[in-house]
Amino acid sequence: MTITRHDTTSTLNLIGPSLGADLITMVREDYWPEITDAQGNRGVEQLAAFLAVAATTTEKVTPSLRVDLFWHVFVLHTKPYADFCDALGGGFIHHFPDRNSGHNPEEGRAAMRRTVGLIREAGYRTDPEFWPLDGAADCTQSYAGCSDSPVSK
């Protein structure tokens, strides 16, 4: 199944409740022990929106720290992750860690603002708990640490 119009419901259906629950469990066990089920469900939703945009834009997008936690555990589910990427219609979305680019808070906030803008333009809702545009701590890690790969699409 390839979705032709991206929206929260159709994109989330590509992940499904069972895989979503597993992603939440892994985030809880590996990174964020105090995450609630409600936060986890919102995290899966924000991940789906981020990846839908990453699949369809030629611009570099970068996740927030919290969205990146969900991306990390999703990538470990190689077959469902590859199927999800295929269904989005933009090819495999590679995850590129970049530990050498430094941690510039201003660049991090600017990258997150660009990404949030693209997510909203695509019709998705952004959750401020997962996209903290004003806080340096949560927004610089992924700018300096992880991004998608628009050039390899």
Score class of each variant (00 low, 15 high):
residue 70 F to Y: 00
residue 62 T to I: 12
residue 61 V to W: 00
residue 72 H to I: 06
residue 68 D to M: 12
residue 86 D to I: 14
residue 77 H to I: 06
residue 63 P to L: 06
residue 93 I to R: 13
residue 78 T to L: 07
residue 61 V to I: 11
residue 69 L to H: 03
residue 86 D to P: 04
residue 85 C to F: 06
residue 73 V to M: 08
residue 92 F to K: 10
residue 55 A to G: 13
residue 77 H to K: 01
residue 82 A to W: 06
residue 89 G to A: 14
residue 92 F to W: 15
residue 69 L to M: 07
residue 90 G to W: 15
residue 87 A to Q: 04
residue 56 T to A: 14
residue 63 P to V: 11
residue 91 G to E: 04
residue 89 G to H: 02
residue 82 A to Y: 09
residue 93 I to Y: 08
residue 70 F to D: 05
residue 78 T to H: 06
residue 67 V to R: 01
residue 92 F to R: 01
residue 87 A to C: 06
residue 73 V to G: 03
residue 91 G to K: 01
residue 83 D to F: 04
residue 87 A to T: 09
residue 91 G to D: 03
residue 74 F to Y: 00
residue 62 T to Y: 07
residue 56 T to I: 05
residue 92 F to G: 00
residue 86 D to C: 09
residue 76 L to P: 01
residue 87 A to H: 05
residue 77 H to A: 11
residue 64 S to G: 12
residue 83 D to H: 06
residue 80 P to V: 06
residue 62 T to W: 07
residue 55 A to N: 15
residue 62 T to S: 12
residue 81 Y to V: 09
residue 66 R to D: 14
residue 76 L to K: 15
residue 65 L to I: 08
residue 69 L to S: 00
residue 56 T to K: 13
residue 79 K to H: 10
residue 79 K to S: 07
residue 85 C to Q: 07
residue 71 W to N: 13
residue 64 S to N: 08
residue 57 T to M: 01
residue 85 C to H: 05
residue 91 G to Q: 09
residue 78 T to A: 09
residue 60 K to G: 00
residue 77 H to E: 01
residue 70 F to S: 00
residue 70 F to Q: 02
residue 81 Y to H: 02
residue 74 F to Q: 02
residue 87 A to I: 04
residue 58 T to H: 01
residue 90 G to H: 04
residue 59 E to D: 10
residue 84 F to T: 04
residue 58 T to Q: 10
residue 76 L to W: 08
residue 75 V to L: 06
residue 88 L to E: 03
residue 87 A to N: 07
residue 64 S to H: 00
residue 58 T to A: 11
residue 77 H to S: 08
residue 64 S to W: 03
residue 80 P to W: 06
residue 78 T to V: 15
residue 78 T to M: 06
residue 89 G to M: 14
residue 59 E to Y: 03
residue 63 P to R: 08
residue 68 D to N: 09
residue 66 R to V: 05
residue 61 V to H: 03
residue 67 V to M: 02
residue 85 C to G: 11
residue 87 A to F: 06
residue 74 F to E: 01
residue 66 R to H: 13
residue 63 P to S: 13
residue 79 K to C: 00
residue 90 G to A: 13
residue 82 A to S: 11
residue 73 V to A: 11
residue 73 V to C: 02
residue 65 L to N: 02
residue 59 E to S: 08
residue 92 F to H: 15
